[in-house]
Every structure is written in C-alpha cells, then in structure tokens.
C-alpha cells in the first residue's frame, strides 16, 4: 500500500491490520514516533493524519486514508516548527521519550485554537502523559508558540 508520510510517498507491503506505528518504525524506519503503551493510553505515538492527532499504536495501517505527519516532518527547509522551537526555548524535555507525541498534539491544538487558554490546553493535552512531570513547561511552550511567552 502507498502512504504519504512527511511529504514522501512510501510503499509499505504489510498486513493491513498492522498498527501504523509499527509500519512507520519497523518498516519505514521513521523512529520519531515512540511506542509507549500500545493501547492509546499515553500519547507517545501521536502523529497527525490530515492535521488531526491520532494514536498510531492502535490505528491499523490499512485504515489510513490521509497524509501522515510525524515529528520528523514538522521542520521545513532546515527550520524547526515554531512549536519545536518553543520546546527548545522553554527547555521542556527531561527524559524526552513522550515529547514527540506532546509536540504533535500541541501542533494540532494550535492549528485549531491559535491562542489557547489554560483550559484549552488541559483539554487537548490530557491524553499525552509525561512520567517526568514536565507539564508546566509544556504549557509554557504552547503559550510561547502561540506568541504569549510567560515562562514555566
């Protein structure tokens, strides 16, 4: 089957029931999206399909019908996406494992709500867990990316 991932056409010959995450990581070699729980309960595997966040660890690859964007496809022409830059500026990551998923959800949130409130952030980000507890810095980075740098 053909997938469009990060702007590239990829030919993947796998069981259509294989989770998208497996196809991305083990077949296409795109290692940015992470395996966390395997049941859509942590958000580490989050990618965008036509701009909407999905948990790729439970989505059968045969059901993918749109353009897939992973953390590896956010930067353009060598320039980080503004959300990635905000993450650096706020030094969000600790261990970093969940951060690709956190950033993908934040990108989707900001596309829909360019200037999110704390409540908007709470509602959007609650499915992306961080065992290091970087939530205050995640919030600060989202606000920075929205143009409202406040510090964590």
């Amino acid at each position: 089957m053909q997938l469009e991932v990060d702007g590239r056409q990829i030919d993947i010959q796998v069981d259509p029931q294989m989770p998208l995450l497996w196809a991305l990581r083990d077949v296409a070699g795109i290692l940015g999206p992470k395996f966390g729980c395997g049941i859509a309960a942590c958000g580490a595997c989050t990618v965008l399909i036509d701009g909407a966040p999905v948990r790729s660890c439970v989505l059968p690859v045969g059901d993918v019908t749109g353009r897939v964007t992973t953390i590896e496809g956010l930067a353009r022409d060598g320039a980080l996406h503004r959300v990635q830059q905000a993450w650096l500026d706020e030094q969000v990551a600790q261990c970093g494992y969940c951060q690709a998923g956190q950033i993908m959800t934040a990108v989707a949130l900001l596309e829909e709500i360019p200037d999110p409130t704390d409540d908007d952030i709470d509602k959007a980000m609650a499915g992306n867990l961080c065992r290091c507890g970087t939530y205050p810095r995640i919030r600060a980075a989202i606000k920075r990316a929205a143009g409202n740098a406040t510090g964590a």
Partner: peptide
Amino acid sequence: GNAGLRCSTCHFETNSQVLHGP
C-alpha cells in the same frame, strides 16, 4: 471531543483487538 483530543484521536472505525485498547 475538544481540539487536540477528539474521540477520533483514539477511536477508529473498528475495535482494537488488544485488551484495553480503544
């Protein structure tokens, strides 16, 4: 659901076959 966390973020057109999967 809400922006960034729609039902469709985790719930697709078929059941996950993994116990506790969505």
